[in-house]
Design a protein around this nucleic acid. Structure first.
Lengths: 335, 335
DNA sequence: CGACATAATTGAACCGGTTACATAAACAAT
DNA sequence: ATTGTTTATGTAACCGGTTCAATTATGTCG
């Protein structure tokens, strides 16, 4: 099938060992032999098999990235951060995605481990029905692992922002002008959902505002979810909230759309705050106030941390890196 | 280090061959042996090494996906299509991206081949300084390859839309009301840029409209590019175009922003048409008229085609699948 | 010129699976 | 009891690299 090291060795009339030495720039090869071998490699267009090498040296120079949603601009940026850091250091990225399903997450991780990736970056799901004993096992085996967000009871290397704090800040911002603030939560299976809700709760508490049960709605993470939740909440009878803190920007966009259709104006009738700071928040019909999360840096940092840990398995077993998120007020909360 | 088939064999007091047979559901294993082996696998939490298997059977059950921009919602959807099709068929996706640099493209492909992916999906660059002899070589070796967009002089399996036709339709739409239409081109290194421009040219020609040289500007593929190009074109002295056909939606968004800052209104002063139909075109400040490209289906179709070709290398050597794109008129071209 | 150090090269085992073939065991038929 | 047939399991080679001890070639020096 394809050219192997044996073909090269034979044509150069040297042993495989010599070819291997040449290709790995090991010393102790004569100038002439090196030249001849390289020439033949070029002529044959020889590409050493990484799978054979991986088997032998027990490292694949690849890492697995398991995100939650491929089709989410936030994760696109994370991916890019991971990708850039990895490729510049000779690592290949194998892609996994849970698409919010715990079963998929587990399957992805399992597959990647069978592929013998040198380490994993996981944006973990959490909540009901999420079994992370397998992540726990990885930890115990000292498998290089970085999670984007902490996992309850499992110490890992974490790269994230302080979601509670960021949500708190955002809601405090809304509370400057509003006294009834709703919360559109994200997927129940995401730890971020819980943290952001906690920030919301604290802000209300601090301001002495009541937490209306019916104002806390499980929305989701996509535009449609925000739209549906918005339609439901604001077409219900009775007085409505005058501001909504959304799990992410997409939900916020959907909400604004729903409000518009209901004849409610943003921000005059209802102020809306998003989260993530995906590109184009500033291009939206109503420029969106949001919490700018450094997604690219999260990805990049996670990759660097992971690679460091791959290199020295004993170090940084339990690092927790929190990057800065900042509130970017725009028109959707100011009239 | 990690558990191997030998460990399992030893504990079950059988040979590796037997363990292998059990794990691959090969017939001719006694009920009791099978059970015992499986039990021990479970107990040891044994995960067969795909790298060893790959070396042996000469297939990795993985494919490489090389896109042009990770951080571009269009490619996010393509990726998702590829990912879904692949994972449901047991293939892993290795990620590559040229980020519009031919050198990167080549490096990505080269790396993926060394990883011995079973096939490649490439969204190829094209134009000046793009050397695709290596893609040509792949073709000759009958390496499974699907490209998203044709490559000049190289017959491959192609999945794409008819860019010329789609651009033509879009520009004809603009030409219903406008007589001077600019074109914001994409990256010079993209074949799509050339095709879309060709559609633009044909539409003008058919309508008998003049093609002003200064109205054809190399913009790029990101929001900033559209913004910059817009600022430049519309702040120049003299009469301006009253419509712009943009390479993609992001450029269109940037342009609308620029126009806004220059005090020009969309669509009243300048009509704008995008391309791709990324999510949120309908959420933009000015809902964007665009050509809706079935990105997810492109990815999915490409993956299916590739996998089919991997299974039967002789078939479909030269398939050319064009999916439907359709114009979605919105406010940015209608007042 | 022989002894010895040094440089260059090779042989063989190994990584962890798969697989063709050989062998052993179980059982039926004669 | 012998042979044949079927079923279950084991042996060993192989995939394409890496690695290290052993070997051979080359060079230095007394």
């Amino acid at each position: 099938m394809s050219i192997t090291i044996n073909d090269v060795a034979q044509l150069a009339s040297v042993s495989k060992a010599t070819v291997s030495a040449v290709l790995n720039n090991r010393p102790g090869i004569s100038r002439s032999t090196r030249q001849r071998v390289l020439e033949i490699c070029a002529r044959l267009n020889y590409r050493p098999s990484r799978v054979a090498r991986s088997l032998s040296v027990r490292e694949t120079r690849s890492i697995g990235l398991v995100i939650k949603e491929i089709d989410n601009p936030f994760f696109s940026k994370v991916m890019k951060g991971v990708f850039d850091a990895c490729t510049s250091r000779g690592y290949t990225v194998l892609l996994g995605s849970s698409e919010l399903s715990p079963a998929n997450e587990q399957r992805s991780i399992s597959t990647l481990i069978q592929q013998r990736v040198d380490g994993l970056i996981v944006s973990p799901l959490q909540g009901e029905g999420v079994d992370f004993t397998y992540l726990y096992d990885l930890r115990r085996e000292n498998y290089p692992l970085v999670t984007l967000g902490a996992i309850a009871h499992i110490p890992t290397n974490v790269v994230d922002i302080d979601n509670v704090e960021a949500a708190y800040t955002a809601v405090m911002h809304l509370a400057e002008r509003h006294h009834r603030i709703a919360c559109f939560n994200g997927p129940a299976s995401s730890a971020h959902t819980q943290d952001r809700f906690e920030g919301y709760r604290r802000a209300l508490e601090e301001k002495g505002l009541p937490l209306h049960h019916e104002d806390v709605v499980p929305a989701g993470s996509y535009v449609e979810n925000g739209y549906d939740a918005g339609k439901a909440l604001f077409s219900a009878p009775g007085p409505h909230p005058t501001a909504v803190f959304c799990y992410n920007d997409l939900v916020a966009f959907g909400l604004i759309n729903a409000l518009d259709e209901l004849g409610l104006r943003t921000p005059d009738d209802v102020a809306v705050c998003g989260f993530d700071g995906v590109a184009h928040c500033d291009l939206a019909r109503v420029p969106l106030t949001t919490v700018q999360v450094p997604a690219y840096e999260i990805g990049r940092t996670a990759a660097l941390l992971l690679i460091r840990q791959i290199g020295d398995k004993e170090s940084f077993l339990n690092e927790r890196i929190l990057l800065e998120a900042r509130l970017v007020p725009r028109q959707s909360t100011y009239s």
